[in-house]
């Protein structure tokens, strides 16, 4: 049943299928260049082009492209400064790249016939896992075993420890899962809804204008969500970084 559906044009899941473009294998590991890889490259090139264009004529009075570049720079710099403080400066290149990459992948995914890199669990979990491992390592480097005190908040009575500590540990370990699933599920659901509405337009013929109006509204909402999810991913990264650098809250 599912196999039949995947050939159907209206199948909302079809857009997430990964197809090989070039077969590449190193040993037993399959690293084929796929449509997903292709859109990762496109997103990266788009970001580079965005900054190259914006910074081609650096002037005191900026043009529109330069304003966009500087706005994104100031936006993430402020985000990092308010959430982490001055110690977060070392992580600015990572946080800025992360935001731009996720934002551009989300946006490019909204273009019809394109592919949404961030709708795949492998990608979002790779980011979330990297952040989780990085933040945990950083926490132990900066605080030693004192970092473990994060699981036992100060002011909690000692008899509560057997309850609080497992909860804190579970919540800490679930961070990467929550972080990655949130982004991937938002992209998956949003793009599926767009596809379903688009299917209604075809099915309803002339009355398709009704779902078309709905589709326009959802498209606007999805554009906003593309930004919002990138923002949430970035701000949570900042918060985790802050926890690692200043664990005593």
């Amino acid at each position: 049943m599912a196999a039949e559906k995947s050939t159907n044009l209206i199948d909302p899941i079809h857009q997430f299928v990964i197809t090989r473009i070039t077969d590449i294998k190193i040993g037993n590991v399959d690293i084929s260049f796929t449509n997903s890889s292709q859109f990762m490259v496109i997103a990266t090139l788009a970001i580079m082009a965005f900054f190259m264009l914006g910074l081609s004529k650096k002037s005191i009075i900026p043009n529109r492209f330069q304003i966009m570049c500087e706005l994104s720079y100031e936006f993430i710099a402020n985000l990092l400064r308010t959430n982490v403080g001055d110690q977060g400066k070392a992580f600015f290149p990572f946080v800025f790249s992360l935001f731009m990459f996720i934002f551009f992948c989300n946006l490019i995914g909204l273009i019809p016939y394109s592919f949404t890199v961030t709708s795949h669990f492998a990608v979002t979990f790779a980011f979330a896992g990297l952040i989780f491992i990085g933040v945990t390592t950083l926490g132990f480097i900066k605080n030693g075993f004192g970092y473990l005190r994060m699981f036992y908040p100060s002011g909690v009575p000692i008899y509560m420890a057997p309850v609080i500590i497992p909860i804190e540990i579970i919540s800490y370990l679930s961070r990467p899962v929550a972080l990655s699933v949130r982004l991937m599920a938002n992209m998956l659901a949003g793009h599926s809804i767009i596809k379903i509405f688009a299917g209604f337009i075809v099915m309803m013929g002339f009355f398709g204008v009704i779902p078309l109006a709905g589709l326009v509204a959802i498209y606007a909402l999805e554009t906003f969500i593309a930004f919002l999810q990138a923002y949430i991913f970035t701000i949570l990264t900042c918060i985790y970084l802050n926890d690692a650098l200043h664990p005593h809250h």
Binding site: I24, I31, T34, S37, M40, T44, P93, S97, H120, A126
Partner: peptide, 15 residues
């Protein structure tokens, strides 16, 4: 494996 490999490559270049 392919997704993660290409993610590392592209994001590495971007970084």
């Amino acid at each position: 494996s392919s997704q993660i490999f290409w993610l590392i490559v592209t994001f590495g270049i971007l970084y």
